[in-house]
Amino acid sequence: MTAQVAVVTGGARGLGQAIVRRLHADGYRVAVADLDGADALAEKLDGTGTTARGFTADVADRAAPAGLLHGVLDAFGAVHVLVNNAARTQATPVLEIAPDELDAVMDVNFGGTFRACQVFGAHLAEQGYGRIVNMASLAGQNGGTATGAHYAASKGAVLTTTKVFARDLAARGVTVNAVSPGPQDGDTVREVVGADGLERLRAGIPVGRLGDPGFVARMVALLASPEAISVTGACWDVNGGLYLR
């Protein structure tokens, strides 16, 4: 059987790159979509372009999802999995967030995810099979504002978006789920909290350590797999016990 095709937005760095590498290692043909760096990562994974291709995509652009879908179909001939990972963070205090900044963050994190779910969801529903995994965040569940109040609000919207599309697409062979990570051991957390804040952050996590992007990627891979037939509209938490529900 021909390997399935997975599209990962924001896939060139950080958690997105971990997801791309995991799916590729699991045998998927992977479309890496990002503002920059996508071609370089795809080249590292497969210089022939047979199992990995890079695509330049700005999810804030209203036309981006349709363009990305058509580009991936032209390159690989199919799409089976969408991982909405692209996101923007700005740690501006809530009372200082300007209207343009609010719009910019919401348009990437919420708008980009919603539009991609629409465009790719329609295609997956038409073919009668598909998996969509939306990357949410602990901030969208507990209102944490370390990465920006607008970021937290946008990720809360992603969780609701996941439920809406899961309900609508369930009867057509498409599952839609979310993964909600807490602080992960990576550059993004270090940039937000700084070296001094890193140890304080770790000490406040019940399991005593930051999250592992590789483990988050494995959870995404499970939800993306054909075996995940009875899980839809769910949010899988990876937060080390910071938020219990």
Score class of each variant (00 low, 15 high):
58 D>V: 07
58 D>Y: 04
60 A>K: 06
61 D>G: 03
62 R>Q: 04
62 R>F: 06
62 R>T: 15
62 R>C: 05
63 A>T: 06
63 A>L: 05
64 A>N: 05
64 A>H: 00
64 A>S: 00
64 A>I: 00
65 P>D: 01
65 P>W: 01
66 A>T: 15
67 G>N: 02
70 H>M: 06
70 H>D: 08
70 H>L: 09
71 G>R: 04
72 V>F: 04
73 L>V: 01
73 L>E: 00
73 L>A: 03
74 D>C: 06
75 A>R: 01
75 A>L: 08
76 F>L: 01
76 F>H: 06
76 F>C: 03
76 F>N: 05
77 G>K: 05
77 G>H: 05
78 A>G: 04
78 A>M: 03
79 V>K: 03
80 H>N: 04
82 L>K: 02
82 L>D: 00
83 V>N: 00
83 V>P: 01
85 N>Q: 02
86 A>W: 01
87 A>F: 00
87 A>L: 04
89 T>W: 06
89 T>N: 01
90 Q>E: 05
90 Q>G: 01
90 Q>F: 14
91 A>H: 05
91 A>K: 03
91 A>G: 02
92 T>W: 04
92 T>A: 04
93 P>N: 00
94 V>H: 09
94 V>M: 12
94 V>E: 11
95 L>A: 09
95 L>I: 13
95 L>N: 15
97 I>C: 01
98 A>W: 05
100 D>C: 11
101 E>L: 07
102 L>D: 08
103 D>E: 15
103 D>R: 13
103 D>A: 13
103 D>G: 10
104 A>E: 15
106 M>R: 11
108 V>T: 10
108 V>Y: 01
109 N>T: 05
110 F>Y: 13
110 F>A: 15
111 G>I: 02
112 G>W: 10
113 T>W: 13
113 T>G: 07
114 F>Q: 15
114 F>M: 12
114 F>W: 13
114 F>L: 12
114 F>G: 09
115 R>A: 03
116 A>G: 14
118 Q>S: 12
118 Q>M: 14
119 V>H: 13
120 F>Q: 10
120 F>S: 09
121 G>Q: 13
121 G>A: 05
122 A>N: 11
122 A>L: 14
123 H>I: 07
124 L>A: 08
125 A>C: 15
125 A>S: 13
126 E>I: 13
127 Q>R: 12
128 G>N: 12
128 G>P: 08
128 G>S: 11
129 Y>K: 15
130 G>Q: 09
130 G>D: 11
130 G>A: 11
131 R>H: 14
131 R>C: 10
132 I>C: 09
133 V>M: 09
135 M>V: 11
137 S>K: 05
138 L>W: 06
139 A>N: 12
139 A>C: 14
140 G>I: 08
141 Q>I: 11
